[in-house]
Design a protein around this nucleic acid. Sequence first.
DNA 1: TGCGCTATCCAAAGCGGTTTGAAAATGATT
DNA 2: AATCATTTTCAAACCGCTTTGGATAGCGCA
Lengths: 353, 353
Amino acid sequence: MNLKELAQQLGLSPTTVSRALNGYPEVNESTRERVMAAAKRHHYRPNTRAIRLATGRAFAIGHVIPLATRHEIMNPIFADFIAGAGETYSKNGYDMVLSVVADEAEHQTYRDLKSRGTVDGMILHAPQMDDARIALLTDIGIPFVVHGRATGAALPYSWVDVNNRRAFQRATEFLLDLGHRRIALVNGLENMDFAIRRRTGFVDAMAARGLAADPALMSSDEMTEVSGYRAARAMLVQDDAPTAFLVASMISGMGVRRACEERGLALGRDVSIIIHDDDLSYMKNGEDVPIFTATRSSVREAGRLAAEMLLGIVADPALGPQQRLLEAELIIGQSTGPAPARHAPVLSATAKG
Amino acid sequence: MNLKELAQQLGLSPTTVSRALNGYPEVNESTRERVMAAAKRHHYRPNTRAIRLATGRAFAIGHVIPLATRHEIMNPIFADFIAGAGETYSKNGYDMVLSVVADEAEHQTYRDLKSRGTVDGMILHAPQMDDARIALLTDIGIPFVVHGRATGAALPYSWVDVNNRRAFQRATEFLLDLGHRRIALVNGLENMDFAIRRRTGFVDAMAARGLAADPALMSSDEMTEVSGYRAARAMLVQDDAPTAFLVASMISGMGVRRACEERGLALGRDVSIIIHDDDLSYMKNGEDVPIFTATRSSVREAGRLAAEMLLGIVADPALGPQQRLLEAELIIGQSTGPAPARHAPVLSATAKG
DNA sequence: TGCGCTATCCAAAGCGGTTTGAAAATGATT
DNA sequence: AATCATTTTCAAACCGCTTTGGATAGCGCA
């Protein structure tokens, strides 16, 4: 059943039916009701393809997922983010189109998505330092919102991000207040912008107490269980092993925990761990009592917000670049406690400074 | 730059240009080259929306993700599956459209996707026992492939699935051969079809050795870390605690491990764990040496295969229902070992039977 | 030279909607 | 009753491509 047929059934012109259905004012209310009723009765759904061609709009938002080497992105965080964004899209009658492409084809994919008119806007994932894609998308001239920020970007652009620096700064302060001095940072890949900011927060907080972050206690890798395990294990065998870990994600945190338990260290007593918790639906950080002390920020919520922001810009491109900085919550769990006694002398010595 | 403009530039009709670009034979080779060159020079990309309307095809595949209550699906497995499927789609010039919808709107979403012509086919996720969606999609008359199977489905349909029954049967036999008798099953939600099959495999393998599966050692819940932890902890405090666990996923396996370690049980010595490993990219089961002994089957590969199957059916609907059963590999890791000595008498007694 | 074939190209009709510009119907006003 | 403004409806153009049904030209062969 299409518009023309429906119009014929009703003895009306397609024009009128179209207008009645789309809520235009220039149609008699009684006619509109008749049309609406008939549409419902015949289960009429306007053809998306036709609407898209006629209006010149795609009613779709694109997400590009680079494959291969930099597979950091096809991670659980991403799944929750698009779940959040997807909610917003369906609520607004938009489709979400995902392009999974080889790394080297990413730029071309953005160009095509625009020039073929497949989408009205895009979300940019996993920005890195000096990310070239921002200039690219700006150049292409398609509305976009970045999930995260890109240190070094010259142009203004729209983004939704967590205050990663502040989150890790606060987490570090929390550990320092507990008396920890040998604090390790198990970070994500440091070409990722969020990882850079987290490190800055960590280093700054240390510096504020007159402590230098020990490079031997800073690792940077993909946020998998295994890499967390390996980083922690390597640090724990050192002479002056860390008493606390700051970890980039729940998953790598589990690897860190494994390494600690393997050495017989009890969490919250012998060693402390703070993770960043993206509040993933299938990877809850405990329920009533959090497993890990954590800096928490829902990535799903970030997805929702980014999508809303983008739809706003698509609807009115004149809005210009918008930003939204989300603060992470510091959740106290069972994985942190005072620095173990054996470090007490070091602690008091340092505390003087 | 559109077709008409390009044609004008070349002094040709749109018809000829279209044909030249699409490889039709009724165009002079030299003309075709001229057209191709001009198209490249002007970065011409045919408008997707127009192609779709003109051909009546969507060149897109839909994946519907139910939200809310049954959020089992927006899990890491799903992320890897769509990554695999997405690869296939891009390779074939198809888009992937994801619909994130509230549970109760799921059926209507399928209907709309079809009647509005947004997609040419769909992938059905997370089938349950007697899943009504199979009848629905059959009724709607759109090509679809199920990721998994639905016990009790009356009609034939296309699917790609892992042999879950066999995988868990073999895993159980492996544990039995190691002398374990008190084996626990930490399963996924048992309204999910895969969970039912896994339980069957477990129960059957036990029965084949004359052992009854103890209901107190079978749990069924979402596959999160926390639920794995809780299930295992509850079982470990029982009088006749299990010496081995069969766990539905890597993530819940990590919860089980936590519960074991909490009780001071060493993996592979005091207690054994076998998990099902979906071979997720960011959740590798170790690298050279697997952490867990596991039944492994790449869900990403399943995504690729399902997508290929679906595109095949879309291209030629006459093909009819197709099936693909993948066998899981049994990977021996460090989490399994002979049943602990204290059970030796039980073991020898049982071994006689 | 003329006819039939094939190779090559084109005009025009869709695809199923939206939207513009105008016509018809209605109501208000004088 | 005639006129004008407003509602309400419609015919037709358009979105950018594909595809059908010719038309034209070039060629081989009688």
